[in-house]
Design a binder for these strands. Structure first.
Length: 491
RNA sequence: GGCGGUGUAGCCAAGUUGGCUAAGGCAGAGGUCUGCAAAACCUCGAUCCAUCGGUUCGAAUCCGUUCACCGCCUCCA
């Protein structure tokens, strides 16, 4: 079965059929660059990053466009507050955004256009809308006339009457209809401005996406994404602008991700209950954040709590612990070849063989990352079971099985962007992070481990256990293994 | 007020275009291993999917009722 996606426009899952076979054109609304990004931005961008990666792995050639809104009221306000030019603000926050996204291991989109670099294109779109009678000019402002577009409201499934009834915003008296929105705004003296047929001004918010998506992806393209909060008015207005200016259908599939909640409430700037990506990354490894954000279905809300993040960290650690074991076995010296026909071997071999098909099945069902992760856990468990089975030994046959597992995990990592580190690097990084928090040095730990080893050698278990308890009180847990005693931090 | 979404084991959560044993994780219990632990592995949990009623041979999944929570209608991923 092929890919099926939930389309916000039709409100149902549909078979995904690209306009051009084997190619996908996708546009995702990016950020307005006036502040650092919060974890909600992380979710939206990670969700579409995984979709981008998955489509590529499914064999599509994907053109992925994600914009930067670098001219906007909020930017102007921020610039005025700081007494700096807008350009300085946007340059800084574009850099901050790129830093955050690269730490979270997001792939670069194919094109990242900026609004201010497409002003002439936007002016052309607006001109067309005015010529076709979908927009009107008042005192240097250009407004889109929603009444000129009979399908206005189709994405948010509301009629204009309903929208008007709920309107809570102060109405600009100059508009013909309160729902009309600005395509071009006459600029005030200190604001950034560009020449236009209507005088000096700047573009409205929505026009950039209509213009830039058409420029890079064509009048009609396959996927348009963004957060649920953009459905109205942003995406509704994009549809109106684009379909009126081109006379063609704008987008075939609309995808919207759910919110990140804090204590079950939407996280937002106005509620001041947000966490920035940088703050979160101080506490958690980037892959923990990624794994957490893809552990739910992308359309569902996800509750951002310390408890949930810690649980995810425990799961990721378990995966890396298995990867480390896998790495050790694969590089260990081979013994005499042994039959791989015991239960644990057969089960793992079967799972490894069907692994990618199962992932594909899950992802083909509207990008079900939650199920994908459950499939990963199953592979991890079966691998651990295999390696710890009494019949297991390192030999040509077992290396072949483990090599197959490793290969599957690499494919998994390519799609989901987690489990991409060398396990030793990941685990030692976790250890040193923990040490700095626990306030105990590694040499102290090793000294105590030696002390305990001496006591154990003397069969003085009371003293050995006392040493271990002391370490537990410091948040250090010991593991006695065939290769000696190892330590790790309590999660 | 209008529109939309959600309600599944102690907790997180998938499944919701009706039909194999209701995924997976955390916590918990027992076991294997261990001097004892830890890790890993094994076993155990919802006769039931907010509520009431209906459709059907068959529903967590469809229809209607009630209750609760959330989002959008304002900048917002």
């Amino acid at each position: 079965m092929g890919l099926r996606v939930y389309n916000s426009l039709t409100k149902r899952k549909e078979e995904f059929v690209p306009i051009k076979e084997g190619r996908v054109n996708m546009y995702v609304c990016g950020v307005t660059v006036y502040d650092v990004c919060h974890i909600g931005h992380a979710r939206a961008n990670i969700v579409f990053d995984v979709i981008y990666r998955y489509l590529q792995s499914a064999g599509y050639e994907v053109k992925y466009v994600r914009n930067f809104t670098d001219i906007d009221d909020k930017i102007i306000n921020r610039a005025n507050e700081a007494g700096k030019p807008c350009r300085e603000i946007t340059t800084r926050y574009i850099k901050e955004f790129n830093d955050d996204m690269s730490r979270l291991n997001l792939k670069k989109p194919t094109i990242e256009p900026r609004a201010t670099q497409h002003i002439p294109d936007m002016i052309n779109t607006i001109k067309t809308l005015v010529e076709k009678g979908h927009a009107y000019v008042i005192e240097g402002n250009v407004f889109f006339s929603v009444e000129s577009f009979s399908e206005y409201g189709k994405l948010s499934s509301r009629s204009m009457d309903e929208l008007l009834a709920g309107a809570r915003v102060a109405v600009d008296e100059r508009k013909r209809n309160p729902l009309d929105f600005a395509l071009w705004k006459a600029s005030k003296p200190s604001e950034p401005k560009w020449e236009s047929p209507w005088g000096e001004g700047r573009p409205g918010w929505h026009i950039e996406c209509s213009t830039m998506s058409a420029k890079y992806l064509g009048n009609t393209f396959d996927i348009h994404g963004g957060g649920k909060d953009l459905i109205f008015p942003h995406h509704e207005n994009e549809i109106a602008q684009s379909e009126c200016s081109t006379g063609q259908k704008f987008v075939n599939y609309w995808l919207h991700n759910g919110f990140v909640n804090i204590n079950s409430e939407k996280m937002s700037k106005s509620l001041k209950n947000f966490f920035t990506i940088k703050d979160v990354l101080k506490e958690y490894h980037p892959e923990v954040v990624r794994m957490f954000l893809i552990s739910n279905h992308y359309r569902s809300p996800i509750d951002f709590t310390d408890n949930n993040l810690r649980e995810t960290k425990g799961n990721l650690d378990r995966c890396y612990t298995m990867l480390k074991l896998l790495k050790e076995k694969l590089s260990a010296k081979e013994g005499a070849d042994a039959a791989q026909s015991f239960d644990a071997a057969k089960a793992l071999k079967g799972r490894a063989a069907s692994f990618m098909d199962s992932i594909k099945e899950a992802m083909n069902d509207d990008f079900n990352t939650a199920v994908s992760i459950s499939i990963l856990f199953e592979l991890v468990r079966l691998t651990n079971r295999y390696i710890s089975a009494p019949e297991f030994s390192v030999c040509a046959g077992s290396k072949q099985i483990l090599g197959a597992v490793k290969e599957r995990l690499n494919s998994f990592a390519d799609i989901f962007g987690i489990l991409t580190y060398d396990p030793d690097a990941y685990l030692s990084e976790e250890k040193s992070e923990a040490l700095s928090k626990l306030g105990i040095s590694e040499s102290d730990i090793l000294k105590l481990i030696q002390e305990r080893a001496d006591a154990r050698r003397d069969k003085d278990f009371a003293r050995a256990d006392a040493v271990r308890d002391k370490l537990i009180n410091h948040g250090i847990i010991l593991e006695d293994t065939a290769q000696g005693t190892k330590w790790k931090a309590k999660t």
